[in-house]
Design a protein around this nucleic acid. Structure first.
Lengths: 193, 193
DNA sequence: AGCATAAATAATAA
DNA sequence: TTATTATTTATGCT
């Protein structure tokens, strides 16, 4: 074709350019041997099937996190449905969603309870290893959290330095803390038995 | 028992009550010769069919007002789907929705364009781009929020004008800010585990 | 019956 | 991905 030959300064491993267009930005039907039409069709069907089951993107994402290990955020599901991702990413996620949806529908057919069970609480097995915080660190972190659930970048850095953890670990701790509490509040308000 | 007497104006008895119970408050299957099971089933199916067509309650309501004369608000559609209406009302609305949905589906099958035409809603109503607030704007907004979480319409207009944002954007900002505050308060009040 | 808006959900900037 | 803005649904009120 008549494309510019670009030299990628950031990637030594990938032959592809680092920033590929998303599927919904693409007009062609096949890219890198990936059938985009097929993916488009699946994405559309997936959304309908999700709605038919009465599931939210968040629920699907959380359920997938349980069965598939790595976290699938609500945003990730949203982006897939809108095809706001690269063909490569879509190709990678598609079979996961396909298999999961198939099972979810089977459970739905065999009774609402089975679906709820499938989506709901299951012991997460493939969870990433968690950082172990010392009791002293947790005490300090919790004290900070009670004063301010959204510490600034500077505060996070200071805390990380003070406690001897990576900055990212501290940042994630606050994210997780907010999420956990939010979930707790939600569950309590829904009256979980 | 020793309950708090709340200032609820709703009556506890149904002697000559003008307010009949809604369908989802009713346990029996037939009321006044109206088959509630049938209505329940239809309401559920209606929602699924609406979602399959990718329509919002608002769109259905607006579309109905075109073909059926008097306007049906989004609230009305919502209340029907949740069966938060009296059997009489449901009985009245059901055939209207039934006929309308039937035609909508036929148009959908014969091409997306026909459905769009039938619904009378703009075809590709693009979602508004997410607004980015400048730090200065956020500072002023937050300062206002601390003084008053519920600014009046006049205040909102003034703020929008002063900051150079659309009035609606500012209004929404306060809505979301109140929600965030509510979440934070709930989290803090529940305490940290 | 329908507005206003809280709550829930989806989409998107960072 | 997360955090935050926008849209959709649900509900209190009159």
């Amino acid at each position: 074709g008549t494309q510019h030959s670009r030299s990628s300064p950031t990637s030594d491993f990938l032959a592809d350019s680092p920033n590929q267009p998303t599927i919904n930005q693409t007009n062609s039907n096949v890219v890198d041997g990936i059938n985009l039409d097929e993916i488009k069709e699946f994405a559309k069907a997936f959304k309908l099937r999700r709605l038919s089951l009465g599931l939210t993107q968040t629920q699907v994402g959380q359920a997938l996190s349980i069965t598939e290990g790595p976290a699938y955020s609500q945003s990730a599901i949203c982006r897939f449905e809108k095809l706001d991702i690269t063909p490569k990413s879509a190709q990678k996620i598609k079979p996961v969603l396909e298999m999961w949806m198939k099972e979810a529908e089977e459970r739905y057919k065999s009774g609402q309870n089975h679906l709820t069970e499938f989506i709901g609480v299951e012991p997460s097995k493939k969870r990433k290893r968690r950082t172990s915080f010392t009791p002293q660190a947790l005490e300090l972190l919790n004290a900070h959290f009670e004063r301010n659930t959204h510490p600034s970048g500077t505060e996070i850095t200071a805390l990380a330095h003070q406690l001897g953890y990576e900055r990212e670990v501290i940042r994630i701790w606050f994210c997780n803390k907010r999420q956990a509490l939010k979930n707790t509040v939600r569950m309590m308000s829904k009256g979980v038995a």
